[in-house]
Write a protein that binds this DNA or RNA. Sequence first.
DNA 1: ATAGGGTTAG
Length: 354
Amino acid sequence: MASTALPLNPTHLSSPGTQISDSPSPPSLSLLSRCATLSQLKQIQANTIKTHLQNHAPTLSKLASFCSLSLPEHIEYAQQLFDQIPEPNTVLFNTLIRSYSRSHTPIQAINLFVKMLTNNIQPDNYTFPSILKACAMASALEEGRALHCHCIKLELDSNIFVQPTLIRMYADCGAIESAQKVFNATMKGRSVVLYNSMITAYVQRSRPNEALALFREMQAHNTPPNDVTVLSVLSACSLLGAVDLGKWVHEFVKKNGLDMFVKVNTALIDMYAKCGSIEDAKMVFEKMPFRDTQAWSAMIVAFAIHGQGEDALTLFRKMETERIKPDDITFLGVLYACSHTGLIDEGRRYSLLR
DNA sequence: ATAGGGTTAG
């Protein structure tokens, strides 16, 4: 890990000329914006301490917020900074809760929410999307239901940002009927995100027909589907093995310019492969102007599940020559290809790569 | 100052 020295703003360095000011100001935004590593953040912190600002709450708050947003892998340091702030406000709680909701320790978000309540800090419309996502990740249904009650009390259950996360929370916790209740309670002017959350919920619980019914309903209600919608709808087609429907969605994708999204094309490859049409999968792959790791993986897996082990391995070698970095799913596809084609030696060789 | 939905595998 290279720790480059940060070019510090001279006004932040202590010198005989700069004495403690009466109203110390937190580190400037331009200084923080050039901060890319934790050690640089600590340099800034050290320099503010040098100018006797160590107990300056706005400074700690700014550092904690920056650390949590821009150095999410150092969430525990953000927490350390946060713990030194005497009276953290709602915004700072929200910022940290959001970081935890995207971390490997979502439970910590729930702990912070509890702390928020015991400190009499009112959660708001920014708090719930993050905390509900954390519950979804942790499969914390009890806590999720309790949070839903808080939403209702604070009249935030009608918030357009809160609703999709309530649905996602219930769906990820396996309570699809509660997700449906939330969805059905929302009536007028449903957003595309709200539809997407329910369609995805159905797909994830292997209920493709209900997902497709909602897909039709949103169009009937003049809510145009977007790239995220078709990702889930294509999953539904795969679950049904419905290639004709998949082809219809493919046409829809082209007509609405959604084929500019790499992920949509990747989902099309997957759909065609799972519906038995490897030729169509190949055609989509070849037409893609840009292919990321996921697109290559999807095509390798597509060949593998069709028993075309040699094609999968050829594609893998081509991926290597194009210097696209393989991921775990790429290797899964490669090994799958070997196992389906009796390529024991190749399989052994590739399994030593990582 | 801070907020929502996501394909590839299993």
